[in-house]
Structure formats: C-alpha cells, structure tokens
Design a binder for these strands. Structure first.
Lengths: 334, 334
DNA sequence: CTGAAAGCGCTTACAG
DNA sequence: CTGAAAGCGCTTACAG
C-alpha cells in the first residue's frame, strides 16, 4: 500500500520518532540525521497520512463553514476569501450548504460534520441565538452574517447601521428626498435588515427629512424579489427618487426593473446597494454600494476561530470585532 | 473526552462489534439487541468519529474539487451543484482553489490533499494532459472544464462545438452577418476556445457567410477583458452587428461596454454568451446564451468519480460522457 | 447472530 | 538529540 513513516524510518536507519521529528520540524535534530530522513522521504515518495495524524493528535486542521448556498455570489466570494485566510494559517475549509433550512443548520452544528473540523464558521439564517447555543457542542464557533446578534457568542460584525447611514446620507447629499428601501419591514429593529433600516432612519433624521413607511418595501434578499418589489412600488404610484437595496442583489434587481420600465438611472432615480459584490462594479450603470470589508471579515473570523481552537484557556471573553466599511460611489448614484 | 463506541458497548452490555454492526446497518442483528444499542447511543449522545473510521477503512468519503477560484460565478455555481450531488450519494466535497496556477494544481494532484479524499474532480487550467497524467497518483480522477482533452483521462464533456454553432446559427438567423468573437485567437483549435471557435466557423460556413479573422479578438475570459476587447473593436473601426462572447463573463463585459458607448443592444448589435450563469438572466438586457447543462455535468462527474472509487476492477475503460446543452434565447439577441 | 483481537498510520508522553 | 511503547477510535477478518 502507501509508504508509511515506518518505511521511511527503516530506509533511513532511524526510529519512527526521529522521522516524526523531522516531519514536524522539531528543532534539535542532528543535521546529518535530518538529511538522511529527508532523502529517504524523497526517495520513497512518502506523504503524511493526514487522517492518521488527525486521529492521534485530535486535530483535523480543518475549519467548517456553514452557509446557505455557494451559488449566491456574496457567499461564494466570502467563502473564497475565508479559504485563502485559512490556508495561509495552515487550515483547510470544509463547506456545508444549509440551503437556508433550520434542519440543515442544526445538523451542521452538532452532527458528524463537527468531528471532521476543529471549529466552525457559521452564517446562520434559520436558527436564532437560543437554538444555536442549545445545538452547539463544545467546539469553537464563530458567527458571521448578522442575522443573529447575541452577547454570548463570538462573531465578526459589520457596521450595518453606520454603513446604511452613510449610503443614505450620500443619496441625500445628491439631492434625493424620497428614498425607497428594499428588504425591510417598517418596524424592523434587529438583524441586518433592522440595523440597516435604523441607519437609514438616523440619516434621514440627521438631515431633517421625514420618514415615510410607504417607502419601505419588505421582500426576500434576492434579485428577482428586488425587481418585483420595484415593480410593485412603481405600480403603486408612490413617488420616489432613489432606491436603497439593503443588499446588492436587491439593488441590481431594482436597477433591472427600472431600466426595463424605461426609467433613467441615476437621472430620474438613483440606486444604491450594500455588499459590493463583484458584479456591482460591472452592472450598467455600475452600482453605488457599501463594501462591508469582505476580506477583513474573512481574515478576522478565521483568526478569531483559530485563536479559540489553539488557546488553552476556556474562559476567554466573548469577542465581537467589527469590520470597517467603505462607501463605493459609482454611476447609479454619483 | 468524547463518547466512544466502547462506552456505548459497555452501556448496552454488548461487544464493540455489535455496536459497529448497528451503526453500519448490518442486517442480522436481533431487534432487541439493536434497540438496546440505539438507546445507549441516544442516551450517551454518541457520534461516530469519522477520522477513526477513515483511518481504519481507508475511505474518507470525501471528494476533492480543484478549481481556480470560488469567486468566479460559474465555478461557484458548479461547486454548489457538485456538493449537492455528492451529498446525495453520501460524500462530502473538499474544495481547493488553484488560483489558476500550475504549482497549485500540481500540489492538489499529488500532495497531502489527496490523502484526505477518495478521488478528485479537477478543472485544469494551467496543466496540460501530460503533466496531469504525470502528477496524478493512483486515486481516481475525473476532469471537468474542457481546457484539457485527452483520450486517456476520464472526463465529463460539454458540447462546445455544437453549442457554439447553435449560438452562431441563431445570430445568423436573426440577420447578423458580422459576428465578432471574444476570447479566441484566429488559429485556435483545441480547448474550449478552439472548439467553440470551430463551432462558430462551422455555422458560418453552413450559412455561406465568410469568416473574417479581424472579427476574432483574443482576450482572457473575464468580464473586464470582454469590455476592453469590445472597446478595442469599436475603436478599430471594424464593423460588426453582433458579439459572441465565448463565455458569459465576456458577453456581459461586452454588453456593459456597448451600453456605455451608447450602442443599442440588440437593435444595433446583438450579444450572446456561453455558460448561462445566473447573472445572465438578470442582466439588462438579459443575455442570450447557452446552458451547457451545469446540473448534468455535476451529476455525471460525481457519479463517474464515485463509480471509479467504489468499483473493484481497475481495468475499466476511459469514460467521457457529454452533457446536453440548451440555447437560452433572451433580450440581447432575440 | 455476537465476541475478542489485531491494526489503520500517525503523535505523545516517558526514558535515556 | 534519539528510541521503544502505548494508544487515538474505529473496522475487519477470524472464530464460534
């Protein structure tokens, strides 16, 4: 079968332990011995069996990443960054698609999936904080994505409220006064939707512009839903001179619908989004949006999770670092 | 530490082997015994340690997937489908991003990555067939993506030539006669680019339309490159009434550039692509393109790979199934 | 139908 | 600096 450490030890005329020492870069090995082992490894084409290492050491060097679906660009781009960040630190990432279903999220939190990984990055969509805490085992867990907020859980935050306020302020400074919001209910307080809506309201208030609930349109955070919501808004006769999609998919859907209806963007109606997915740069017109700091989110969440995995003291305080956002001003709302 | 099979055996008053039998659904167990074991599992919260199972059985039940980068929508969407197909058959997928670099592809083919997986799905971009055959170990390998074609390797094909001909014929039937091609060199014969170019030429020939090398613009298969190529084409003064992007990214880049320059699509210039990524449906105007059968590619490649993993006979013939394509006619080229 | 034993290929104390 | 032994938690022949 495969070449094992035993074969290498025999070929190099040393013990198993010495081979292990060489492989794991143990410092105090006589250079000549080390060279002999390295030569033997080369000659035999030996490769470490990672499964065996995992079983013995109790570490898999894999992180789990639970998200809804990789076919959603924001998640795919985040996953890509997370994989790179993990790789740079000697970890691999095993992705699990929840399909936005509570059952799958639950399974990912407690099932065998966890025995394959040292810790979990989790973008919850269906479960709430209580359910997550109940289902989570003892292995480290870091949340992403903001649908869940809880002081008991490690998570990487984005500045939802501040960023949404910045987008709104930018639209107001461009002379817009009737800014429609796609993707929230009038009363929302929590979650990304609630926080972004709060930012929107705060910016309006700061500018002395009245808040009109008729401009707030609830819908799923998908492109087709954004197009539909825009259509309903246009048909309803409510007047508006700007659309703020609470994510880019919504904003791109709005853009599409407005262009289909022959409305000029940004002349008649400005459009802005939230996320800065790659596509926003290439839309026609290109989309003004907020970059929530994807690379930074990836870096910090991986860093925090690995810190939890590798630290001895179990009594660490909960950490909730915030990534820095940036406004990206493009053609749809110059 | 964790609950082991031993703990379960003790609690249920049976041997290790019996617990193993229950877990692995061995048929002939007395129902009462089985129930006792299941109760013990439940009570203790036992979960199989997959690492230990892998080490002993020599099977990881994981498939490797090597692709350039998940942030590229086509790959992300394909990865999503592949993960679902694998999941349905009891396998997980471990994704490795090559970043389109030969060194990384090489590492994925032979490195420790392989000891974590039972087989590999590989979308080669940098390595050629010889290099792949030289680097590949003994574990099963199935290729995707068409940059490499070789009779010695299992792969799932798409009908590049036929599909490109169908797109071209559709443009010709719409009255277009000067169809620019983005993403190939005039002389290309092999790879997706060569095959698609061949399909284009075949369709022209069938319609009795002359082939003009000035209409063939080489560039990377990225959106910005498609926009640049379109800009160069417009600036060069070469006349054209349609653009065929050899993938959707190129076509979407062309669409963007044409709209920026104030050219009407499809009235003045029709645009078509290849891939049917989700975004093409939502572009403005929506993009006419070819769906190469992504779900089918995912299904068949996973199926073929698992067949290789699980079959005993090593002397199987090379298989190269072809996925069926479909033309998606939308606004950009009705 | 069920048990007792061996062993997958490593790492980890324990010695020296 | 290096060795000999134990053991991570399973599955797999081998018995009965």
């Amino acid at each position: 079968m495969a070449v094992t450490m035993n074969d290498v030890a025999r070929a190099a005329g040393v013990s198993l332990k010495t081979v292990s020492n060489v492989i794991n870069n143990y410092e105090f090995i006589r250079p000549a011995t080390k060279q002999r082992v390295l030569d033997a490894i080369d000659e035999l084409g030996y490769e470490t069996n990672l499964t065996a290492r995992s079983l013995r050491s109790g570490k898999t060097s894999m992180l789990g990443l639970v998200l809804a679906d990789l076919s959603i660009p924001y998640y795919a781009e985040l996953a890509s960054d997370i994989m790179k960040a993990a790789w740079a630190r000697g970890y691999r990432v095993l992705v699990e698609q929840s399909g936005n279903e509570a059952e799958h999220e639950q399974a990912a939190l407690q099932g065998q999936f966890r025995s394959l990984t040292d810790g979990l990055l989790f973008i919850p969509l269906a479960l709430d904080a209580e359910q997550i805490i109940a289902a989570a085992g003892k292995k480290p867990l870091v949340l992403l994505g903001e649908f869940v907020q809880d002081p008991r859980l490690d998570m990487v935050l984005i500045q939802n409220q501040e960023a949404a306020a910045a987008v709104t302020t930018h639209l107001l400074e461009g002379g817009r006064r009737r800014i429609a919001v796609l993707g929230a209910h009038d009363g929302d307080e929590a979650g990304s939707n609630g926080l972004r809506l709060r930012g929107y309201r705060a910016a309006l208030a700061a500018a002395g512009v009245a808040y009109d609930p008729a401009l707030v349109v609830p819908c799923d955070w998908r492109r087709d839903a954004g197009a539909d919501a825009t259509a309903r808004l246009l048909d309803s006769g409510v007047e508006f001179d700007a659309v703020f999609g609470l994510n880019d998919a919504l904003a791109l859907g709005a853009l599409h619908e407005l262009l289909v209806r022959g409305r000029k963007v940004p002349e008649e109606i400005a459009v802005a989004g939230f996320d800065d997915i790659d596509e926003s740069r290439f839309a026609s017109p290109s989309l003004t949006t907020v970059a929530p700091g994807r690379a930074e989110i990836a870096e910090r969440s991986v860093e925090l999770l690995i810190q939890r995995i590798e630290s001895k003291d179990a009594v660490a305080n909960v950490e909730q670092p915030e990534a820095v956002f940036e406004l990206r001003i493009r053609q749809s709302a110059p």
